[in-house]
Design a protein around this nucleic acid. Structure first.
Lengths: 347, 347
DNA sequence: GCACATAATACAAACGTTTGTATTTCAGCC
DNA sequence: GGCTGAAATACAAACGTTTGTATTATGTGC
């Protein structure tokens, strides 16, 4: 029926010009609605172009126009709803500026990230948006000599759009403190504790509330699920258990939920658990997890606006940092709550 | 520190040629390791290119080479793990052929799908892969006049790579029959029942087992969660309840799980439930859902191989259809099972 | 040192589009 | 009917790269 194998040379502006017996330049102008071509000619050419199935060759156009109207987005993990929201924000904002979006998934692999950036550079995109970059900043410094790069959630980057991690963690901590908790545990991430902004917020919040810092309440999480059960053991082994725990991310918090349940500890009645990130699963676990969410859609929009102003030579104002949002679900409650409920139906 | 706003004209092959005092053509050949240039020159040029941060202009290259080495993937929903696996298969297979992959998310919007296809056409990609296309086939017939298109899971397309829905549903049905079920219900999807391949498989399997078709065991699902509780009511209202139900997708099956639990009906002891699709949640619900999965990674690989052979003028052999895979979890069991267990811990 | 082969490099055209400038066409007017 | 000015169109160069061909350098054998 059709002819994918014969590869019929694609129809160009010259073909249309010949068919309409005009000059190629007239075809171009006709297609871009220039007032320089007579309406009748314009219509004839438009009809011809449609009939012949003309699709402009972006390569040729890019070559002469020096712009593609493309934005490249380098995503570590497509599946993460985080990035869907971010992508949506990017897409919507890009559309407002007449920009089109291309995505490349790196699966969190650093070399793939480099290749993606390279590909976008070759494609001459107007700018590249890189959320949660794996590559070192020195690499991006270099790339930025040739191409606009806006990073998301890398506050150390020159041009970035971020969310305040400390602020988010403070929201969680204040929530727990407001509920009346005085002994609050913290499960740190794989990062060096000293540099961990969540840890900073944890201590700042305690200080704010006039509570002494107790190193016994700090637990180390190495990213594996196995270690989370070790943490539960460690937690339950304490003479004075904390009444609430702030885990550095939801994965971790959910693993703890499971571990505690297996030990017959009720959440939030015996202990409150709060996470961070608001991954999709957090809404479905039993009990649904209190956590903090980042406004990814908004960050997506902002990153495009920032990119746009940068690539239009505007003075890059210091990028504003968005505020995170506290999401209170059922995994947190007052300490030693009076109202003991039976485990609800899950999912 | 850097200069994103001054927009320093990007470095071209001519700049390198000037710096090395050779002709641009020599630079090209040096960079592509041609034996025509003296090793010393080649190294000098390579060093210069690296120093000056040269990145080839794909537009110019595409223009003269008439090929981009790019594949475009039009995805309805990035977040769906389905497409992550598919994308992974595409990516891996593409790498083998020296092809690079570009993604565009349409969020299931038909107009966005058209725009994505258009963008990829303008970019002169080698081919476009479209899983679960929204646009009508007539549209793709037209596109295929100019560009290779391989569709995934659209058995009606000219060039497609698919999975056999009927076969998958037969797997589910035979599983239920093997367990000893004789009264099996079916929850249909929004599709017209007569054309639904799952319905076809349902009836075929019954016939195979010598069981009469009973229209009372067919339930209509309109895609809303509300309707699933209606289905549960309808189900429980029957004089002779089915001992197992095959739901046309996991969303539906999971909603039923919830509904049945609320009515105090045990799964799988009182009734077995099987779904279709193997969405991520299905492994986490209580009890974990028996379902059928499609080998998306394999489909991704196949689609690239197919694309590759098509765009190399090979005779397009009728695409082979992959086999779906039965995933038996805990939501199915023998009818009126002796061993009654208490509800396990969820998630 | 001269012819010759071959290695190394330079030249020039081409890809499809856009755009500034030159040329033609055509009314309207005296 | 020739002149003017504007409208419509044609011409040509350019974008950065590749590649076939022409040209120049380099070495070899006598």
């Amino acid at each position: 029926m059709s002819n994918a194998r014969s590869r019929p040379r694609r129809v160009t502006i010259k073909d249309i010009a010949r068919a309409a017996s005009v000059d190629p330049s007239t075809v171009t102008r006709a297609l871009q609605q220039s007032p320089r071509v007579k309406p009748a000619t314009r219509e004839k050419i438009a009809a011809l172009a449609a009939d012949m199935g003309y699709v402009p060759d972006m390569a040729a156009r890019t070559l002469v126009m020096r712009r593609t109207g493309l934005i490249g987005v380098v995503i570590p993990d497509m599946t993460n709803p985080f990035f869907r929201d971010l992508g949506q924000g990017i897409e919507d904002e890009a559309a407002k500026h007449g920009l089109r979006v291309l995505i490349n998934d790196t699966r969190g692999i650093e070399s793939a990230e480099r290749e993606a950036v390279r590909l976008f550079q070759e494609l001459q995109v107007e700018g590249i948006i890189v959320p949660m970059a794996r590559c070192p900043q020195s690499y991006y410094e270099r790339v930025r000599e040739a191409c606009t790069v806006v990073q998301v959630n890398r506050p150390d980057a020159s041009f970035h759009v971020s969310c305040d991690t400390i602020e988010g963690s403070l929201l969680i901590m204040r929530h727990l403190l407001d509920l009346g908790h005085r002994r609050i545990g913290f499960v740190s991430g794989p990062a060096i504790p000293g540099e961990d902004p969540k840890m900073l917020a944890y201590r700042a919040a305690l200080e704010e509330a006039g509570i002494d810092y107790d190193p016994n309440l700090i637990f180390g999480f190495d990213g594996t699920l196995k270690s989370s059960s070790a943490i539960v053991d460690q937690l339950l082994g304490l003479r004075k258990r904390p009444t609430a725990v702030f885990a550095h991310n939801d994965i971790n918090a959910i693993a703890m939920l499971r571990g505690l349940r297996e030990c017959g500890i009720a959440v939030p009645d015996d202990i409150s658990i709060a996470g961070h990130d608001n991954i999709r699963l957090s809404a479905y676990v039993e009990p649904p997890l209190t956590t903090v969410a980042w406004p990814m859609y908004e960050l997506g929009q902002k990153s495009v606006r920032y990119l746009y102003s940068l690539s239009h030579g505007k003075r890059p104002r210091k990028p504003r940092v968005s505020a995170p949002e506290l999401i209170v679900r059922e995994s947190t409650g007052g300490p030693k709550a009076a109202r003991r409920k039976q485990t609800r139906s899950s999912v």
